[in-house]
Lab assay of single mutants.
Amino acid sequence: MEVRTIKVFTTVDNINLHTQVVDMSMTYGQQFGPTYLDGADVTKIKPHNSHEGKTFYVLPNDDTLRVEAFEYYHTTDPSFLGRYMSALNHTKKWKYPQVNGLTSIKWADNNCYLATALLTLQQIELKFNPPALQDAYYRARAGEAANFCALILAYCNKTVGELGDVRETMSYLFQHANLDSCKRVLNVVCKTCGQQQTTLKGVEAVMYMGTLSYEQFKKGVQIPCTCGKQATKYLVQQESPFVMMSAPPAQYELKHGTFTCASEYTGNYQCGHYKHITSKETLYCIDGALLTKSSEYKGPITDVFYKENSYTTTIK
């Protein structure tokens, strides 16, 4: 009895394709271990004539594949690729409408935090270190965002349907971005203890939790000093293409032309909904596939993004 075979390709990165001759009487799992086709788990399936010449994702289970996976995804987590594939199996079914010149995501599976993050990423200057993220990001900007969303979920250790947080998501993504040249110098002034300067680099240099107003941050924000008295913390120097200011959701007025974009969060910790506000020729609110415009805006804002380049204080 002759062994019926077909020729397929296996890959971990969709760049390096490895030619395989597979036995049609055995499952993919018996031949390769966990195997995925377009995100779908085909591990328990036997090869079919229609699979001839198709590319299958496999887990990096030998040295060659491990090197290829690390170079593309910059992670050695053995569960990463499987999590990416199972997320992709959902995100490829989502709709990605162009809204006001940006790629958004039609609401499904509690994905409003991903839509808000995706919209924000198209408006701030950011370059990702893992080629996987950078490639998928370019495709997302062009309207094909399924891979990018699935990668975000995998890097953030999230599953489809789980509630997510924009600030946490951005923080994970910033860790995989090139923020080497970003720098922030802060000064804390206390009447009792004097003053202390701190220099922050990388992710810490672009994120701040405690106030939404970048102007206020430049002037000074009140913080408790270690001595128990009130101290003032203010920005001395900022070198970065953008800054992200966050605070627990509270009524906040966004003035046209003073910011790049913002995240609105309605609801409580267990259950809520994100919308995205962007400042173009007027203010726009993007909620999944829905767009509304207004000249002014007041609502429960939790993150505001500002364009920056270089700032030095005039406070002496």
Score class of each variant (00 low, 15 high):
Gly101Glu: 05
Phe128Thr: 03
Val3Ala: 14
Leu163Lys: 15
Lys229Pro: 02
Cys190Tyr: 03
Val160Tyr: 01
Asp41Met: 10
Thr76Gly: 14
Glu308Ile: 11
Gln98Thr: 14
Val160Asp: 01
Gln197Thr: 15
His18Val: 07
Ala145Ser: 04
Leu81Gly: 07
Thr103Tyr: 12
Ser246Trp: 00
Lys316Tyr: 15
Phe9Asn: 13
Lys46Cys: 12
Thr232Trp: 11
Gln197Ile: 09
Lys54Phe: 13
Gln31Gly: 07
Phe32Gly: 06
Ser240Lys: 01
Leu235Ser: 01
Asp38Glu: 13
Arg4Met: 13
Pro60Lys: 02
Ile223Asp: 07
Arg66Leu: 12
Cys156Met: 14
Asp23Thr: 11
Pro130Thr: 09
Ala250Asn: 11
Lys106Ala: 15
Thr116Glu: 04
Asn14Tyr: 07
Met170Lys: 00
Lys92Val: 09
Ile6Val: 14
Thr198Gln: 14
Gln122Val: 03
Gly257Asn: 08
Met209Glu: 10
Tyr269Glu: 15
Gln134Lys: 12
Gln216Leu: 07
Lys280Gly: 13
Gln238Met: 00
Gln230Ala: 13
Tyr84Gly: 03
Leu102Pro: 03
Thr192Asn: 13
Lys93Ala: 10
Ala142Asn: 14
Lys218Met: 04
Lys201Ala: 08
Val3Arg: 14
Gln230Tyr: 15
Ala250Asp: 10
Val203Ser: 10
Ala117Arg: 03
Glu264Arg: 01
Ile45Phe: 15
Glu168Thr: 13
Gln122Met: 05
Gly29Leu: 08
Glu215Asp: 14
Gln238Leu: 01
Gly29Pro: 04
His18Asp: 07
Pro131Ile: 03
Val236Ile: 11
Phe148Asn: 02
Gly39Asn: 08
His74Thr: 02
His90Trp: 09
Val3Lys: 13
Ala40His: 12
Ile105Val: 07
Glu308Arg: 06
Gly164His: 01
Gln123Cys: 09
Leu283Asn: 00
Ile315Val: 14
His51Phe: 05
Leu173Arg: 04
Phe259His: 01
Val188Met: 09
Thr103Leu: 06
Phe80Ile: 04
Ala289Ser: 12
Thr19Val: 11
Asn147Tyr: 09
Cys227Thr: 02
Lys229Cys: 10
Thr76Ala: 15
Ser181Met: 15
Gly299Trp: 00
Thr266Val: 10
Ile223Val: 15
Tyr113Asp: 02
Gly53Gln: 12
Gly288Arg: 02
Ile223Cys: 15
Ala142Ile: 12
Ser213His: 05
Asn187Phe: 06
Pro78His: 10
Val3Pro: 14
Gln122Tyr: 02
Pro34Leu: 11
Cys193Glu: 04
Asn147Leu: 05
Gln216His: 12
Ser79Gly: 14
Gly29Tyr: 10
Val206Ala: 00
Ser171Arg: 14
Gly257Tyr: 01
Thr199Ile: 12
Leu65Met: 10
His90Pro: 04
Leu151Tyr: 05
Leu290Pro: 00
Gln230Asp: 10
Asp180Ile: 05
Thr282Asn: 11
Asn147Ser: 11
His18Trp: 06
Gly257Asp: 12
Ala87Arg: 04
Leu212Lys: 02
Met244Ala: 00
Asn89Ser: 12
Pro34Tyr: 12
Gly82Glu: 14
Met245Arg: 00
Leu212Gln: 01
Gln251Ser: 11
Tyr172Cys: 09
Lys54Leu: 14
Leu212His: 05
Gly202Thr: 01
Ser181Ala: 15
Met207Ser: 06
Ala115Ser: 09
Asp23Ile: 15
Phe148Ser: 02
Glu125Met: 05
Glu308Lys: 06
Ala142Leu: 13
Ser171Ala: 13
Thr43Trp: 07
Val22Met: 11
Thr199Val: 12
Thr35Leu: 09
Lys233Trp: 08
Leu290Gln: 15
Leu163Ser: 11
Glu215Gln: 08
Asn309Met: 09
Ser310His: 15
His256Thr: 12
Pro60Met: 06
Ser104Trp: 01
Gln30Ser: 14
His176Trp: 15
Glu2Gln: 10
Ala154Thr: 11
Gly82Asn: 10
Leu114Tyr: 04
Gly194Ala: 03
His256Met: 12
His273Ser: 00
Gln251Leu: 12
His51Met: 08
Leu153Met: 09
Thr116Met: 06
Tyr28Phe: 15
Ser263Leu: 06
Thr169Ala: 06
Leu59Lys: 09
Trp107Lys: 04
Tyr265Gln: 01
Val67Arg: 14
Ala250Thr: 15
Glu125Lys: 09
Asn178Ala: 10
Gln222Val: 10
Leu179Tyr: 00
Tyr274Met: 02
Ser294Ile: 15
Leu126Tyr: 03
Ser213Pro: 02
Ile315Pro: 15
Thr258Ile: 07
Leu283Ala: 00
Thr192Met: 11
Leu283Pro: 00
Thr278Gly: 08
Val42His: 12
Glu204Lys: 13
Thr260Cys: 13
Glu71Met: 07
Ser104His: 04
Gln31Phe: 12
Lys158Met: 04
Asn14Lys: 10
Pro131Ala: 05
Val42Ile: 12
Thr11Gln: 06
Leu118Trp: 04
Asp165Trp: 01
Gly194Tyr: 02
Asp135Asn: 11
Arg167Phe: 02
Ile152Ser: 02
Ala250Arg: 10
Tyr172Val: 09
Gly101Asn: 09
Lys307His: 12
Lys127His: 11
Phe56Lys: 04
Pro47Gln: 04
Ser263Ile: 12
